[in-house]
């Protein structure tokens, strides 16, 4: 039965005691969400199978765009770099983040100041942070200066112009900025670890590692799920830092799907092909999000 008719007929008896707003209050937000998210994404998915350039006529090209992505060496490298940065940053920020959280958890007198300081990079603009690191990685910059100081002159290099090292330099920049975020998630998780159980385990002779593995880690499992899922989704779409640090170079060594989407669609006007790259990225993100939910769900369910 249509809800409207139902309401008219039964209004005198079924009218709720309190009227919680009008239904049309939700309308502007719903229209915006449908327009900006659903309609745009579906249209983009359609463009991915065309050769549209943003102007004039377009043709349906089927899977041609996708065949081009996976046969072009530069673009397959971009796909691998996307994976490398996402997985690398998740591993790095989660391992270091959990260590930071354990390091400042409980008893420390200055734990709130430390938390504020270690979280600070998270609020900064990724672009601004990238410029600071660009300076650090310069050939006559502080990193090479430090290596020279400790007698490792042979390790000195132009980090961002080196095809083997530039992607790792970007990874460190990302990790530096987002470790505070995982730390804060783990601090919130650690607050839920039952202190009595941990004390009891310690009295029973469990070492630091045993307590972490058997008491702390199971309690913070939800935090691990949140931190890794958000980290993967963020990591797969990294753009700002790459664009500022290397612009995708040297010779495409640090291109990712995100930088290629921007270049193909908005610099070269290949809207169809750019959308195909975006569709690949979308499927990768959704795939990882589902996989993550599956891997980090608690063993009981």
């Amino acid at each position: 039965m249509p809800p409207g008719r139902h309401r008219i007929r039964t209004r005198p008896t079924k009218k709720p005691l309190i009227n919680y707003g009008h239904w049309w209050w939700a309308l502007p937000a719903i229209v915006l969400v449908v327009g900006v998210h659903y309609a745009a994404t579906l249209t983009g998915g359609f463009f991915a199978f065309t050769d549209w350039t943003g102007l004039g006529r377009w043709n349906w090209v089927g899977f041609e765009n996708f065949a081009r992505i996976f046969s072009d060496g530069k673009l397959t490298l971009a796909v691998w770099n996307t994976f490398l940065l996402a997985i690398g940053s998740v591993v790095l920020t989660n391992v270091v983040g959990i260590l930071f959280a354990l390091g400042i958890n409980r008893t420390l007198k200055s734990r709130y100041i430390l938390r504020t300081l270690l979280f600070m990079p998270v609020v900064l603009s990724p672009l601004a942070v990238a410029y600071v690191w660009k300076f650090i990685y310069q050939f006559d910059g502080p990193l090479n200066g430090f290596l020279g100081l400790i007698g490792l002159e042979s390790w000195q290099k132009t980090w961002l112009a080196d095809p083997n090292w530039s992607i790792w330099a970007i990874l460190v920049t990302i990790a530096w900025q987002s470790t505070g975020f995982t730390m804060v998630i783990y601090l919130a998780g650690l607050a839920s670890v039952p202190q009595e159980v941990e004390e009891a385990a310690a009295i029973d002779g469990a070492g630091v590692w045993g307590r972490f593995w058997h008491v702390v880690l199971p309690s913070i499992r939800p935090s691990v799920a949140i931190a890794t899922t958000l980290g993967i989704v963020q990591g797969l779409r990294i753009f700002d830092q790459i664009y500022a640090l290397t612009g995708g170079g040297p010779a495409g060594a640090t291109e990712t799907l995100a930088t290629q989407i921007y270049k193909q669609a908005f610099q070269l006007g290949q809207f169809g092909f750019g959308s195909a790259l975006a569709l690949v990225l979308t499927l990768v993100i959704l795939g990882f999000a589902v996989l993550q939910q599956y891997l980090t769900r608690s063993p009981k369910d």
Binding site: P3, Y20, G21, W23, A26, I30, V33, V34, V36, H37, Y38, A39, A40, T41, T43, G44, G45, F47, A48, V233, R237, A258, I261, A265, F271, G274, S275, A278, L279, L281, T282, I285, L286, A289
Partner: peptide, 29 residues
């Protein structure tokens, strides 16, 4: 505050949009 079918549907519509990556919609937008 409302418990009709459409309000539950709207909630899930919104929830899915959080996960949906924005990149694919950028070109049409």
């Amino acid at each position: 505050r409302r418990t009709r079918t459409w309000s539950t549907f709207t909630f899930y519509l919104v929830l899915i949009a959080i996960v949906l990556p924005a990149q694919l919609g950028t070109v049409p937008l």
